[in-house]
Design a protein around this nucleic acid. Structure first.
Lengths: 148, 148
DNA sequence: AACACAGTTAGAATGAGTCTAATCCGCAAG
DNA sequence: CTTGCGGATTAGACTCATTCTAACTGTGTT
């Protein structure tokens, strides 16, 4: 089920929040806990439902707020696929996403630095990019790494 | 403004439609004409407004239908950026998209085959991908190639 | 104790996209 | 012809993720 945050994760959360002038609140802890509990890529609704088990009064708006705050201070990444609901991902290492056409599951794909470099190199002069999103769509019959 | 389709483009449209069992209709021609007229990345609404100049009775639903049909028979690509409205792109050559953070304009970025290959190579065994989407977000002070 | 103020809350509002049911149109059969 | 069929088109209702709003809460401050 949903374990509490380790000391380490708690510090991580606190540091990131404080650094961008935000406060640590019980709701934010709860949402962050949910995100770390399963390293999948939950939608806002999934986060909401999971977090409610731990904090029943929590409102959907707050989940939106928390997640937005986390994105703002670099704690999590948003993952968008086509027009589906936005998903959230606490894996901060540079990685691509692979979405299984049939199951809808999203898998993290590691991005070696040389691939990142070759991608950056295809930008014509004058183009300066901060964020590169790479997403695959297909079929995976994987034994599961980080799934959903 | 909006010119008529060249013979060549008309054949292209007809061939693709017929090949997937669809009919050529005036509405589809109008929408396709709009897409080719400016090689930008219009939203459904933009396509709708432009196409209305040429065919005033055209309905929004039809524009959605036409574009869906075109995507289905490989005539155009959808371009999604975060949660913004879907845009449509008649450039079929493999390419990435660069979105200017400030202007919102979308630029096509050519994708050399070796980059495609290196991307495909990072997929672990068992993962089979048909579609790869690559999008950059940043600032461009470009002299303009294919813009918007 | 009174204040300020960020965070939280419920519910209303938004807006892209989808669905539905009615109509239209081209064409093949009678 | 004219009738009937099926796909395409249409207007408008609907959905649903997300955003907005305005009231409320809780904590720390003077």
């Amino acid at each position: 089920m949903i374990r509490n945050l380790t000391e380490h994760d708690k510090e991580h959360l606190q540091e990131a929040l404080v650094k961008s002038g935000q406060k640590v609140t019980p709701q934010r802890e709860a949402v962050f806990t949910v995100l770390l509990a399963e390293r999948d890529h939950p939608t806002v609704d999934e986060v909401f439902n999971r977090a409610r088990e731990v904090m029943p009064g929590l409102s959907l708006a707050t989940v939106y707020n928390c997640l937005e705050t986390f994105v703002g201070c670099g704690l999590v990444r948003q993952v968008n696929h086509e027009r589906e609901s936005t998903r959230y991902c606490p894996n901060l290492a540079p990685h691509a996403h692979f979405r299984d056409k049939e199951t809808g599951q999203v898998h993290d794909i590691e991005l070696p630095p040389e691939v990142m470099k070759s991608l950056r190199s295809i930008l014509p002069p004058g183009f300066d990019s901060e964020v590169i999103e790479i997403s695959f769509l297909g079929r995976a019959q994987a034994k599961d790494t980080h799934s959903n």
